[in-house]
Write a protein that binds this DNA or RNA. Structure first.
Length: 494
RNA sequence: GAUUCCGUAGCUCAGUCGGUAGAGCAACUGACUUUUAAUCAGUGGGUCGCAGGUUCGAAUCCUGCCGGAAUCACCA
């Protein structure tokens, strides 16, 4: 442990002094009757109310024989008034610090300046805080807005010590509460339709369902490698093979790739598979789901992000990938040869590398020319087959797949397709992936024989959808960094 | 991976032209029984991210490294 600073030393001394006064600085429980919010609601000029509140001291004004302190609980803050004579051992009050957790019993009253407070007749230390916390102070300006002085805003410390961030910057709790509500609203939406929430392996002997590099670990007893899942797609489809007709999983996935403001090595995805449905049906379901979730958590389908107001009310614009590129470039690329496409892509500012296939070129063109402009929710449909090894070929064009991605605010939010259930086609496509892998593409998929066997047993027509939960939370809470919607974002060792 | 910026007391920050470290809050001592950025008087607290270099002298200039942020690239 690092050397103690003067404040840590002092607090340890106070701990001993408390014990000498016969005070247990870490008692096992406190019988709280009201939250800070309930106390404020309870106040009545006519009738006197007695309450027991508890929380962390966030500010303190000691005045010799009386002390005012603000105590913070999950609901907010309440001022307590501790006066010598009213409290059995006022010496204990003198030993209190900002950060200590206390319980206070007493009568609810209003101070001279009108703040509802608790006039203590008893005070118990519930946890002596041994490490000082940042102490921003709040004032109100002439318009009544809260002004925070010396805010605790160092991003690194806030991410590394999120508990401090949550204590001090209590507003940020709202983001995480909303995150929780988003997930539970989505869960409610699926449960109401009779689809089953399931759990599939995080540790997988063979990874699949996406193109990404995995984290590898090792099982000692079995003496074999395991991979942390990059997706749960192949397991969920096995469950549809098994006869479930609607399954979903809210899944932590792990991808051993770059980190930036939209990527964290572990992140949350929701994947759902529904039998006898196709991607057209899935687009409607996605619209309904997002509209529902958004209005449940924000009481409106509109979200303001930067300079844009995004509306999650359906229906969303639908346009095929090739048409979207056509609109953006004024050029119909659907009948171009791969060579023509490469030349055209280059003319549009795409960096061309040797070995880029038709699908890759189209994808690059799309990223370069279209993606950023997709602000309102937009379904981009019918991706090239090379880009979509797990998606069913399009009913009208075997070079394309029945796939869509949903773009919002210039970024991908969801990915879905009519699932490929032709086992022989799936084998051919995975073998092609394996060839890419052999050629050095570390993100290409591997051939999963058991998954192929499941398809041979038979997967009914099925629609599947994946939604990036972190990105959805970012959109609905107006945050531009994934780190701001994760309690504990991954950080390099300090 | 590239570029730019940042790293000084527990927190927020200042530190000029290179001359040996400052403020507010927090802490400590004293006064104060309705304060609320409490007030008043006083005190202590620093490996200036780390390691080198230049210099009589480095928080300051140079190089490398560590950590962070932003932008870009990569990532269907």
């Amino acid at each position: 442990m690092a050397e103690l600073n003067d404040q840590q030393i002092r607090r340890r001394e106070e701990l001993s002094e408390l014990r000498e006064l016969g005070v247990d600085p870490f008692p096992p429980m406190y019988d709280r009757t009201h939250t800070s919010e309930e106390v404020r609601e309870l106040f009545d000029e006519e009738e006197e109310h007695t309450v027991r509140v508890a929380g962390r001291i966030m500010s303190m004004r000691k005045m010799g024989k009386a002390t005012f302190a603000h105590v913070q609980d999950a609901a907010g803050r309440i001022q307590v008034y501790l006066r010598k004579g009213d409290i059995e051992q006022y010496d204990v009050v003198k030993l209190l610090d900002i950060g200590d957790i206390i319980g206070v019993s007493g009568k609810v009253f209003k101070t001279r300046v009108g703040e509802i407070s608790v006039h203590a007749d008893g005070m118990e230390v519930l946890c002596k805080s041994l490490a000082p916390i940042p102490v921003p102070k709040e004032t109100k300006d002439d318009d009544g807005n809260v002004v925070i002085h010396d805010a605790f805003k160092d991003k690194e410390t806030r991410y590394r010590q999120r508990y401090l961030d949550l204590v001090v910057n209590h507003d940020i709790k709202d983001v995480f509460v909303k995150r929780s509500r988003i997930i539970s609203a989505m869960r409610r939406f699926f449960d109401d339709r009779g689809w089953l929430e399931v759990e599939t392996p995080v540790l997988q002997p063979m990874y699949g369902g996406a193109s990404a590099r995995p984290f590898v670990t090792h099982h000692n007893t079995l003496d074999m490698p395991f991979y942390l899942r990059i997706a749960d797609e192949l397991y969920l489809k096995r469950l549809i093979v098994g006869g479930f007709e609607g399954v979903y999983e809210i899944s932590k996935n792990f991808r051993n790739e770059g980190m930036d403001r939209t990527h964290n090595p572990e992140y949350t995805a929701m994947e759902i598979y529904v039998a006898y449905k196709d991607y057209n049906w899935m687009m409607e379901m996605t619209e309904q789901c997002l509209e529902y979730v958004c209005s449940e958590v924000n009481n409106t389908t509109e979200v303001v992000i930067g300079e844009h107001t995004i509306n999650f009310a359906g229906p969303y614009k639908r346009i095929s990938m090739l048409d979207a590129i056509g609109e953006a470039t004024g050029q119909d690329i659907s009948s171009m040869s791969t060579e023509e496409l490469a030349t055209f892509a280059k003319s549009q500012g795409v960096e061309i590398e040797a070995g880029m296939n038709r699908g890759k070129l189209i994808d690059e063109l799309f990223s370069e020319k279209v993606e950023d402009s997709l602000i309102q929710p937009t379904f981009i449909t019918d991706y090239p087959v090379e880009l979509s090894p797990l998606a069913k070929r399009h009913r009208d064009n075997p070079d394309l797949t029945e796939r869509f991605e949903l773009f919002v605010n210039g970024a991908e939010l969801a990915n879905a397709f009519s699932e490929l259930n032709d086992a022989l086609d799936q084998r051919a496509r995975l073998e092609e992936q394996a060839q890419h892998r052999a050629d050095g593409d570390e993100e290409a998929m591997v051939v999963d024989e058991d998954f192929l066997h499941a398809l041979e047993v038979g997967l009914p027509p099925t629609a599947g959808l994946g939604i990036g939960i972190d990105r959805l939370v970012m959109l609905l809470t107006n945050n531009s960094s994934i780190r701001d919607v994760l309690f504990f974002p991954q950080m390099r060792n300090a």
